[in-house]
Computed example of a mutant assay.
Amino acid sequence: MGMTIYHRIICFFLFSFLGYLLECVVLSYENKRPVINRGFGHGPFCIIYGFGAMGAMILLKPLSDNLILLYIATTLMATTMELITARMMIKLFGSFWWDYSRKPFNYKGIICLESSVAWGFLGIFYFRFLDGFVSQMAGVVPEGLERMVALSLLAFYIADFIYTMRLQLKSSCDEDDATMIGRLKVY
Score class of each variant (00 low, 15 high):
Phe12Asn: 04
Ile181Asp: 07
Ala86Cys: 11
Val25Tyr: 06
Pro62Met: 12
Thr79Leu: 09
Ser116Pro: 07
Phe133Arg: 08
Phe45Pro: 03
Ile90His: 14
Asp131Pro: 01
Leu21Thr: 14
Trp98Tyr: 09
Ser135Val: 12
Gly109Leu: 06
Arg8Gln: 15
Met88Phe: 15
Phe40Asp: 00
Ser28Lys: 05
Tyr49Gln: 03
Arg87Gln: 11
Leu113Arg: 09
Ile84Ala: 09
Gln168Tyr: 13
His42Pro: 00
Ile9Asn: 09
Tyr157Ala: 12
Gly123Pro: 00
Met137Glu: 00
Gly52Tyr: 04
Asp99Trp: 10
Phe13Met: 06
Ala150Asp: 04
Gly139Lys: 09
Ile84Gly: 00
Leu70Asn: 01
Thr74Ser: 15
Ile10Ala: 05
Gly139Leu: 08
Leu92Met: 14
Ser172His: 15
Lys170Glu: 12
Pro44Phe: 10
Phe51Glu: 04
Leu21Cys: 13
Leu122Gln: 03
Leu18Lys: 04
Gly182Thr: 07
Glu143Gln: 14
Leu18Ile: 11
Leu169Ser: 02
Gly120Pro: 01
Leu14Gly: 01
Leu70Pro: 02
Met165Thr: 14
Thr79His: 11
Val134Arg: 09
Lys32Val: 02
Leu18Thr: 13
Ile90Pro: 00
Ala138Asp: 01
Phe51Asn: 06
Leu59Ile: 02
Ile48Thr: 09
Phe105Ser: 05
Lys185Ile: 13
Ser171Cys: 09
Glu23Arg: 07
Gly55Pro: 08
Val25Asp: 05
Ser101Gly: 04
Lys103Val: 11
Thr80Pro: 01
Ala118Trp: 14
Ile48Pro: 03
